[in-house]
Design a protein around this nucleic acid. Structure first.
Length: 480
RNA sequence: GACCCCAUCGUCUAGCGGUUAGGACAUCACCCUUUCACGGUGGUAACACGAGUUCGAUUCUCGUUGGGGUCGCCA
């Protein structure tokens, strides 16, 4: 069966990780069945609309490669795909639902606050009993004709238990008495999510509804609407939330990372997508690295998990490192270039820098702290030259640095291999350990105990002139 | 408070009555090595608790505890 799924975000300004994961599962359900994935913008709440938000949605989906088959920008047979452009459709169906007995007109003032205080002074909402429910239809219509503001509210008269099946949570049973008669069509004529969703999913022939599990308890209400219209409800796939920690969902409000934040921090879109796919789904074997097209082939709803997953930036970082290492040298260099531009103004051999950085950087943002010493030689204490394991101290350093500088002046082809071979030979000639030459050299070139790349790699990045200059400076410092 | 949902290493998870409870991240140790990293090898580490069903429960049932969600003219 070819599935039709939709990603239906409301344009509130950013793409958060949980949303993106839902979109991914929707996309995969569609694509793994050879079906269609559509994009629908749910902008029925004008108060929350954020300018430019739809562009963020488009660009995020595009950069991860989740292309939609129908949507606001490309159209399709079931448009329009923006809810604010479908206002008249909802009104039509809402009034029809009233006739069918699935809803009623309601004239109650907004915010009918029905609540109780319990012993602990907590506010406990009690079920709203709508007096308008009893109003004869012709009386209600007369009020509307007279210009009275109204909403259309769902009517729930059923008794007993409602049942529905969810693909991840199994069979769910909820008492009809626990459902409330929510507003379907607002005073401003816009539908609420509760209504627009049902209408659109049906009209757009959506087969699988994928959404957060917070909708489980209201699903019976949606089924009542499907039922009233004589429509078949979709397959439900409720997914657990992505958490920040055991108690809190991941949310922008808490300052948690969005997709944009992550890419800005130097995470690759493919890695982010791969990681979030595994937050609540697994293939059943040990494979962890997947491209989107691989996922399309092996994804299955039955391997979706029902417990919440905590977003672990540490594991994402590891995975990002895997993706970085699997890049070709050219690809890495190309992506790294803008990062170099942020922190390096000096003329360096950037190709060599990329070679050194690629195997040891986990995000592109790591480039910045790894390269600071290249840009500007840091202050350091000459005690750094003392290293037991390398068998060096300031005296050894003075001696080997002098030897090194002589040799380096003569090196013609300035690259890591030549430099390393030459210095190794130098060590052998003078019966020194490699480290006694190389360790002091790194200190002289970097002022740091540890660096990305070895001494000769650093030299190959800095270039001959700067390398020799830094060694001279080091000798001055040692002799002072 | 009512209703719904969830519960395996610190984290993501495998497991669908009988396993030395497996993998990955993290962590620790060692190896490799011009430092760091990469890579390799090995280690530490989990079935929330209590009943029941069963010859046998991580697995099935019930309860407890803990956590989450819903109870908006937000989605």
């Amino acid at each position: 069966m070819k599935a039709r799924t939709r990603f239906a975000p409301s344009p509130t300004g950013y793409m958060h990780i949980g949303n993106l994961r839902t979109a991914l599962y929707e996309y995969l359900i569609a694509k793994s069945s050879g079906g269609s994935f559509l994009l629908r913008i749910e902008d029925t709440d004008q108060k929350r609309y954020v300018q430019g938000a739809t562009d963020i949605i488009y660009s995020t989906l595009k950069t991860v490669g989740m292309n939609w088959d129908e949507g606001p920008d490309i159209g399709g047979a079931y448009g329009p795909y923006v809810q604010s452009e479908r206002k008249s459709i909802y009104a039509e169906y809402a009034h029809k639902l009233v006739e069918l007995g699935g809803a009623h007109y309601c004239f109650c003032a907004q915010k009918e606050e029905a609540e109780n205080n319990d012993d602990d002074n907590n506010v406990i909402p009690i079920k709203f009993q709508d007096p308008c429910k009893q109003m004869p239809l012709n009386e209600a219509r007369a009020k509307i004709a007279a210009g009275q503001p109204y909403v259309i509210r769902q009517t729930i008269n059923k008794k007993g238990k409602s049942h529905f099946h969810d693909e991840v949570y199994g069979d769910i049973e909820i008492d009809y008495d626990d459902l409330d008669e929510g507003v379907l069509l607002k005073t401003d004529g816009f539908p609420t999510y509760n209504f627009a969703n049902v209408i659109d999913d049906h009209l757009m022939a959506i087969t699988h509804v994928v959404r957060g599990n917070e909708y489980i308890s209201s699903t019976p209400k949606y089924n009542l609407i499907y039922e009233a219209f004589g429509w078949t409800p979709p397959v439900y796939v409720h997914v657990p939330p992505v958490m920040k920690d055991a108690q809190h969902k991941l949310s922008k409000r808490n300052g948690d990372a969005s997709f944009q934040d992550l890419t800005a921090k130097g995470y690759l879109p493919e890695a982010i997508l791969n990681y979030i796919a595994l937050l609540g789904w697994n293939p059943g074997d040990d494979q962890e690295i997947f491209s989107l097209s691989e996922l399309e082939k092996i994804f299955s709803i039955s391997r979706l998990n029902k417990s919440p997953a905590i977003f672990d930036i540490i594991k994402l970082t590891w995975m990002n490192g895997c993706y970085i290492r699997s890049l070709t040298a050219d690809e890495f260099h190309k992506i790294a270039l803008p990062w170099y531009n942020k922190c390096i103004t000096r003329k360096l051999n950037l190709e060599n820098l990329s070679k050194v950085l690629q195997p040891r950087v986990e995000t592109f943002a790591d480039i910045i702290p790894q390269t600071d010493f290249l840009e500007k030689m840091p202050e350091y204490d000459i005690s750094l030259y003392e290293n037991k394991k390398m068998k060096t101290d300031t005296d050894v350093a003075k001696q080997t640095l002098k030897l090194t500088i002589q040799l380096l002046s003569d090196v013609k082809d300035w690259n890591n291999e030549n430099l390393f071979a030459a210095l190794k030979e130098l060590a052998a000639i003078h019966e020194l350990k490699n480290g006694q030459i190389l360790y002091p050299l790194r200190i002289a070139l970097s002022g740091k105990e540890t660096t990305a790349g070895g001494a000769t790699e650093i030299a190959s990045i800095l270039g001959k002139e700067e390398t020799i200059f830094r060694i001279k400076e080091a000798l001055k410092k040692l002799e002072a």
